[in-house]
């Protein structure tokens, strides 16, 4: 793999750059600055960094209090804890009070592969998306992550951003990372007829893109949408992708309930009914392994996605 920079490090780089000229940027961690790649920020801007200790509920409430006093707050903690232990703080103090807090769920999904279900966050999309005012983003690579954080610095609304622990292969380049907030990115097949539309988010975008290439080699045309904005879902892009294809396959590192697949299926069934196959983690504790091993086991890798697409079209 060429890229050695995980998305979490891209977040730190972006915040470091902007904090130089913006004293209102505040970063909070819950004894997680190392795993969030935010140590450099803590050292460079100690007055804009707050260490909360292992207390996720406090992390989120303190973040909301700072935000209510004009700060642009980024609170980073492992997604498994941030989206469950402090869920009510996200609901009341961030979403309901509508404070300018970006919750950053690090090491999301099955990033902590071998550490067990306590450390997996296969429910965070469903949980966070169910909160009014809360937006949910799963950027697919470091370049998109940078663009996303820059966009979130410009608005004052709540958001949840999930990133993985490990470096992921680049999809975009520094010069070519098309990005518009809350608009999905067409990676293949925009304005073209396709056999299958692949819609993915976060770390499953790259496997979906490779799957499209595998399918093309077999004469199957696949469009690919990077739906980093799971909420608000880019409904227009979903409708366009589904309309131009015979069927849709969604891919996500998440429970089969309440995530990207469920949301896409809602839109497609309402606006342009056709077959939607959801590829996701199982409704069960996940098998032990690295992200790549787990993805392959559950058919969320390129081969699994291509296989599912062919089955849907058969």
């Amino acid at each position: 793999m060429a890229n050695k920079l995980p998305n979490r490090a891209a977040i730190c780089e972006t915040l470091l750059t902007h904090a130089k000229t913006d004293p209102d940027i505040f970063v909070l961690c819950s004894d997680s600055r190392g795993s969030a790649s935010l140590t450099q920020f803590a050292e460079a801007f100690p007055e804009q960094f707050v260490e909360i200790g292992i207390a996720e509920q406090n992390l989120v409430s303190v973040a909301a209090g700072l935000a209510s006093c004009g700060k642009k707050v980024f609170a980073a903690s492992p997604a498994c804890f941030l989206s469950t232990r402090s869920y009510e703080q996200a609901k009341i103090d961030v979403a309901y009070s509508n404070t300018n807090v970006t919750l950053i769920g690090i090491s999301g999904g099955v990033s902590y592969g071998a550490l067990g279900m306590s450390h997996h966050s296969a429910q965070d999309i469903a949980a966070m998306a169910a909160l009014p005012n809360m937006r949910v983003y799963l950027p697919s690579d470091r370049h998109q992550t940078k663009k996303l954080i820059e966009a979130l610095l410009l608005d004052e609304k709540p958001a949840y951003v999930r990133v993985g622990r490990n470096p992921v292969e680049d999809i975009y380049t520094e010069q070519d990372a098309p990005f518009e907030l809350d608009k999905a990115v067409w990676l293949r097949g925009k304005d073209e007829k396709a056999d299958i539309a692949l819609i993915a988010c976060g770390e499953t975008v790259k496997p979906a893109l490779v799957a499209a290439e595998l399918l093309e080699a077999e004469g199957i045309r696949a469009s690919v949408l990077d739906m980093y904005c799971v909420k608000p879902l880019d409904r227009a892009a979903v409708v366009e992708a589904a309309t131009n294809a015979r069927a849709v396959v969604t891919v996500e590192e998440h429970s089969p309930f309440g995530g990207l697949g469920a949301m896409v299926a809602q839109v497609v069934s309402e606006r342009c009914p056709k077959m939607v196959k959801n590829l996701a983690l199982p409704d069960a504790p996940v098998v032990t392994g690295t992200s790549a091993e787990v993805f392959a086991y559950y058919g969320l890798d390129a081969l699994g996605i291509a296989k599912a697409a062919k089955e849907v079209l058969a």
Binding site: N58, V62, L66, S68, C69, E88, D93, S97
Partner: peptide, 16 residues
């Protein structure tokens, strides 16, 4: 700030 669920006011005030 909104409240209603208990145990939120003090941590929010810490942030303020």
């Amino acid at each position: 700030m909104n409240s209603g669920s208990l145990g939120h006011g003090l941590p929010v005030c810490v942030g303020m």
